[in-house]
């Protein structure tokens, strides 16, 4: 769908088309157009995340409650002070500032505190979550009934056998000989077919993105022609 042919739209679409063509120019070889687009995007991306994180997280989660409570505290308006909130906001601020202590070798070790906190939260959250969603749920999903028509039974058998044999391939506590060896061999076949399918699927998704970019360039041409018509 082509936007309305206004001067502003022509400008923005032309900018996007220029950047798109600059990136495609890398297919020939590294060149100034590509490098300009690359550097522009690094800057825009960093600036974008600064603004997004400021507005969606830092401002509301930390800075405004901290400033409001601090102003109330220092102006003597104690009834407006949420002392609990203020204390809770000071801690991540102090831990965050500790990150900068890496630049001071003598007290650089203090920067381990925020890292420790971050790791603790990530590890503590990940442990039950990954066990539940990646291990228990996948095992539950593999316990499928061998009923229905012969084709369904065959497919379900492949899924069950493929999962067990795939796991056998990653099991290194026993030598891959005999039964375990046979299972590991079948497992690696299933894994290779899986990797091949995933690869093919990824290529197709990239191709559809490519088609999307070409469609955009056609839209841009249409917009420019409509504007000057």
């Amino acid at each position: 769908m082509v936007d309305q042919a206004t001067l502003a739209n022509v400008f923005w679409f032309t900018l996007a088309a220029y950047l798109t063509l600059s990136i495609f120019s890398f297919l020939y070889k590294d060149n100034p157009f590509y490098r300009l687009a690359e550097h522009l995007i690094v800057g825009l991306s960093a600036g974008y995340w600064i603004a997004i994180l400021w507005h969606t997280s830092l401002k509301d989660l930390w800075l405004y409650p901290l400033v409001d409570n601090s102003v109330a505290l220092f102006s003597g308006d104690f009834r407006a002070v949420e002392i609990w909130r203020l204390s809770l906001n000071v801690i991540p601020g102090v831990l965050g500032l500790f990150m900068f202590l890496r630049f001071f070798p003598k007290i650089g070790w203090l920067s381990r505190w925020p890292i420790a906190f971050y790791l603790a939260i990530s590890a503590g959250v990940s442990l039950p979550l990954y066990l539940q969603s990646f291990t228990v749920e996948q095992m539950r999903a593999s316990m499928i009934p061998l009923t229905g028509n012969p084709w369904e039974i065959f497919c379900n058998l492949i899924v069950i056998a493929g999962t067990i044999c795939g796991l056998a391939y990653f099991y290194f506590s026993m030598e891959h000989k005999g039964l375990v060896g046979g299972m590991a061999k079948f497992g690696v076949w299933v894994l290779m077919i899986g990797f091949g399918s995933t690869f093919g699927y990824t290529v197709m998704s990239r191709i559809s993105l490519l088609i999307g970019r070409f469609r955009f360039l056609i839209d841009w041409c249409t917009l420019v022609v409509n504007y000057f018509k």
Binding site: L131, T135, Q138, G166, I193, G194, S197
Partner: peptide, 18 residues
């Protein structure tokens, strides 16, 4: 086969992360 392969990998990833 892709589902079977992914399940084997996911089960391993879950145990590894834990």
């Amino acid at each position: 086969p892709n589902t079977a392969a992914k399940r084997a990998i996911y089960i391993g990833v879950g145990l590894g992360v834990a």
